[in-house]
Computed example of a mutant assay.
Amino acid sequence: MRICVLWMLIVVCGSRSEERNYQGYSQIIPQHPVILRGSSLTLACVLGKNELSYANASHIYWKLDEDLIPEEYYSIVNETVSHVTIRNFTAQRRHVRCYIRALKHPQLLQQTELTSGFPPEKPENISCIYYDQKNFTCTWMPGRDTYLKTNYSLVKRRPGDEIICHSSHSSCFFLYPNINFTSEYEIEVIAENALGEARSDLVYVNTLKLVKTAPPELVSVEPLQGMKQMLTVIWKRPLLVPYSLSVKCNLQYRVANSTWILLNDIYMGQEKRMAYNLTGLLNFTTYAVAMQCICTDGQIFWSEWSAEKTGRTEEQAPSRKVDLWRVIRHQPDGKR
Rank of each mutant, 00 (worst) to 15 (best):
G38M: 05
W305A: 01
G196M: 02
P30N: 01
Q331E: 10
T85G: 01
I261P: 05
R320K: 11
P177W: 03
F301W: 14
V205P: 01
N206P: 02
E197C: 08
G117K: 05
L175E: 11
E184V: 10
C4P: 04
S82R: 10
G280P: 03
F89G: 05
T207S: 00
R199Q: 05
R326L: 10
T146Y: 01
A198R: 04
M274E: 06
N78A: 03
R157D: 09
T213C: 10
Y287Q: 03
Y99K: 04
P142C: 03
P119A: 14
L47T: 02
D323T: 14
T139N: 09
I300H: 04
R336G: 07
S17Q: 13
L224T: 15
L9M: 10
Y131D: 02
T115H: 03
S303F: 00
S246Y: 04
S168P: 04
L148H: 01
C4I: 12
R199N: 09
V241S: 08
V205T: 02
V5P: 04
A102G: 15
L239G: 12
L202F: 11
N78M: 00
E79Y: 10
T90Q: 03
Y253H: 14
L208S: 12
K228N: 08
E66Q: 09
C4D: 12
K209R: 14
A256T: 10
S319W: 07
V211S: 00
T259E: 13
A214P: 04
T232P: 01
L41A: 12
P159V: 09
K156Y: 08
A194V: 01
C98T: 08
Y185W: 04
V255K: 15
L52A: 03
H330K: 12
L68E: 13
E222H: 11
R199A: 06
P242N: 06
S15N: 11
D161W: 15
I29W: 07
V12Y: 11
V84N: 01
